[in-house]
Design a protein around this nucleic acid. Sequence first.
DNA 1: CCGATTTACTCGACGCGTAAACTATTGATG
DNA 2: CATCAATAGTTTACGCGTCGAGTAAATCGG
Lengths: 164, 164
Amino acid sequence: MGEGRLRKEIGKRGAFDSSEEELLLNLLRTHDQLQIRFVRLFREHGLTPAQYNILRILRGEGRPLPCLEIASRLLTIVPGITGLIDRLEALGLVMRLRGDADRRVIYVAITEAGQERLAGVDEPLRRLHRELVGHLEPGEQRELIRLLEKARAGRDAGAADHDE
Amino acid sequence: MGEGRLRKEIGKRGAFDSSEEELLLNLLRTHDQLQIRFVRLFREHGLTPAQYNILRILRGEGRPLPCLEIASRLLTIVPGITGLIDRLEALGLVMRLRGDADRRVIYVAITEAGQERLAGVDEPLRRLHRELVGHLEPGEQRELIRLLEKARAGRDAGAADHDE
DNA sequence: CCGATTTACTCGACGCGTAAACTATTGATG
DNA sequence: CATCAATAGTTTACGCGTCGAGTAAATCGG
C-alpha cells in the first residue's frame, strides 16, 4: 500500500525504479500539496508567497535590508527582486531607502501597513500549520525533521557551517 | 539543536513558533534544494521539469492521452497545458492527434524523438536520485516515505471530498 | 583626475502556474 | 430539428523564477 498510493496519484505504469525515486516523488508531491494551501492562505490576505516571505524577512530582521541581502535569503535569483519590491511598494507594504554610505545600495524597509498585513496572517498561518501536519505525533514530527535535515545534509554537508 | 541550522539558513530572528512550523519550513527548504538539481539536470537535456513530466506520463501510459488527462496527473491547472504542449510540439517531442470519436478531444502522443530524449535522461536521473538521498539508510527512506504519506493523508483523507 | 573594473541593481524575454473568459463540439431536451 | 448545458481545449492576463544584458555608483590603476 505504501507504493500503490502515489503510483495511482501520479499515474505511473510500473513500480518505482528505486526507493530513492519513490522517496523523491513523495517529497515533491507532498510539497506541491502543501504549497497549494499556503498560496490560498496568502492570497486571502492579498499576498503571494514571495511577497509574504520578503515581508517576513524584513520583520524578522527588524531593520531595512539591501535588495541583494533579501535575494540571498530567498534562494531566489537576483533580478526577480526588483519586480517583487515594485509590487510591494505599490501596495504600500514596503518602501525603498537610498543608502547614505554607499549610494549604490537601496535599502528596503517594511512599512506600518506591511507590519499590519503580516500580523493579520500570523494566526491563520499558525492554524494552517497545525491543520497540515498537526496530526503527526510529536515524535513523528521530530523524526521527519531529522530525516529531512539528513536528506539535505547529503548535498551541502561540508558547506553547511560556512553560514550563508 | 536541530532548530539552529534551519533558522540560520532562513535568517529568522527568534525560535520557531511551533514544531509544525519547523517541520514545514524544513520540507519547503528541502524541496527547493532538490528542485534546483532536477531543473539543472533536465535543462542539460533541453527540457524543463514540466516538459519532462509530460513526456514521462506519456511514456508510462504507452498511448496518446487527452490534454485534460495529462493536466489531471500533473496537478497543474488546465490552461497551462496548452502552452506546454505547444512547446513540446515545436520541439518535435510530441504530436497532437484529433480524436475520431469525439472531435473535441485532442490526444497527445509522444514521438520517437520524445522517446529518445527521455531515454537520455533516464540514467543521469537515476544517478541524481542516488546522489540526493542515497545516503539515507533503506530503513530511513521507508520511514521518510511513510511520514510524508501520513502528512499528506491528513489533508486528503477525510476532507478530500469537501474540497473548499 | 581619467578610464577601467567591480558592485548593486534594473530591464527584457521566456517558461510556467493560476484564474477568468472564450470557442468548439457533444449530448440532452424541447 | 432547435436549443441549451456540459465538456475539451484555448486565449488572455498577471505574478514570479530564471537568464542575459544593461545602467549607475563606488573603487582602483595610471
